[in-house]
Amino acid sequence: MSFIEFVEGPFYTVAMTIFLLGAAWRVIGIIRIGRKKDISPPKGSAAAGFFKGNLRHFFPRGIFARRTWLHIVGGYGFHLGLFGLMLFAAPHVAFISERITGFGWPTLPRWGFVITAEIAFAGLIVLWVRRISDPVMRLISDWDDHIGTWITFFVMLSGCFAMQESHVFLRATHMLLVNIWLIYFPFGRLMHAFTFFLSRGNTGATYGRKGMNL
């Protein structure tokens, strides 16, 4: 079995399995801790608050955004760029349709891919350099933050290295890093991609129940 066959075959399957089971285990683990039932007479709906909380926190408030606009731009740039690449890069769609879904969807043209990647990279770099050059960030960051950032960065970088699609080795390297990323994901802070809805939702539910207008 060649290296590329290994990283796209059995290794990928194992990594994906760890990713899916690990992420599910962790989310379910958090939910299962449970909350005591609140018996104070409610003023509003907790369920509605759960959704409202999730939506509300997508939109920064002006009074804070004026101070932290660069962080917001970097954050959104990176995340939207990453999702754009992950879901709409032509090689990704080909891989997903072949391996998982059985069908594909429209993909980004090459120039679209390049611009999306540039936005994602710019965002990620801004986020990380902010992490190392702000006293607050230096104080609260831990190794998990840095590892998560750097693995993601290398996955993206190896992907862009392979853009000529002329060397199997480069493609295999990208795939190898993707597998490592998938395995690390459920154990580290990358999991925020799945836990955010719980945290926003829980606060939203508490607030919603109190009839708070946030």
Binding site: A117, Q164, H167, L170
Partner: peptide
Amino acid sequence: IMTSAALQGHNL
């Protein structure tokens, strides 16, 4: 291989 990778990275 390295040149191909570097060129793509450099252009991006």
